[in-house]
């Protein structure tokens, strides 16, 4: 399910417009299987939009995104891109997990119900099977005792860990994190970052949009700076943060320190 060169995600020259406003101006990136890629950059640089294009929460208008060798959202008919029917897009999303800035747990369901919902509904798992997986995942993110609580009774950090467990229950090939700690208190940020770091060490392929520079440096295999709808530079974390290989990166890192 990977490209010939081993990439799980391959984006080429991706463009996206919101009306007249061009937010992605030709993004090209690749992520190898088992690799952790962090995307940093100022707000409005298009990093979240790019992430959302990967699982078709947004539709890109030009270029190509392949995940596992499969073209996302379109069918290539002799070089012309034809949008896939919704049913096919829905199927493509199954292998891609996503964690949101605002957690987005289903508030009318308990934590356990949140986690078993999609495996039962989408994958057709039996309840016992789905619950066993869910309890194991809750153990992994340290929330076993909150299985029967409703989301609004949890702290932000607990909600985000539950949301990570919910995404993992679908056994995705790829996990997307859209600023997973931006809505959290500093005290609870750490517990969520630990869970994500654990997941990275387990070999999960991940793309993380983040403002946590220390985290990006420790956990990533590669870091990318996006600015103004384009990839400005990318490098391994040591080179990236030590040598700061572009003027824009130097300027960006200077603004946040």
């Amino acid at each position: 399910m990977t490209d010939v060169d081993g990439a799980l995600v391959r984006a080429e020259n991706v463009h996206k417009w919101f009306g007249q406003n061009e937010v992605l101006k030709g993004v090209s990136l690749h992520v190898g299987r088992g690799e952790v890629l962090s995307i940093i950059g100022p707000s409005g640089s298009g990093k979240s939009t790019f992430l959302r294009c990967i699982n078709q929460l947004e539709t890109y208008q030009k270029g190509r995104i392949h995940v596992g060798g499969e073209l996302i959202g379109f069918e290539d008919r002799g070089g012309r891109l034809v949008p896939l029917p919704n049913r096919r897009i829905v199927a493509q999303r199954r292998n891609i997990g996503m964690v949101f800035q605002q957690f987005n747990l289903f508030w009318h369901m308990t934590v356990l119900e949140n986690i078993i919902e999609a495996p039962m509904l989408v994958l057709g798992q039996r309840r016992v099977e789905a619950e066993a997986t869910a309890m194991a995942l809750l153990e992994r993110v340290g929330l076993s005792e909150k299985a029967h609580a409703y989301p609004m009774k949890l702290s932000g950090g607990q909600q985000q860990r539950a949301a990570i467990a919910r995404a993992l229950a679908m056994k995705p090939d790829l996990m997307l994190f859209d600023e997973p700690t931006s809505a959290l208190d500093p005290e609870t940020t750490g517990e969520v970052l630990n869970v994500i770091a654990d997941l990275a060490r387990s070999g999960m392929t991940m793309i993380v949009v983040t403002h946590e520079m220390a985290f990006a440096r420790q956990v990533s295999d590669r870091v990318v700076l996006m600015e103004d709808g384009k990839v400005d530079c990318e490098a391994d974390p040591e080179t990236f943060f030590r040598d700061q290989p572009s003027a824009r990166l130097k300027a960006f890192l200077a603004t946040i320190h």
Partner: peptide
């Protein structure tokens, strides 16, 4: 966000 979460989990 609730709908996006459901979509991201592969719901039709």
């Amino acid at each position: 966000g609730q709908i996006e979460a459901a979509k991201s989990l592969g719901m039709g």
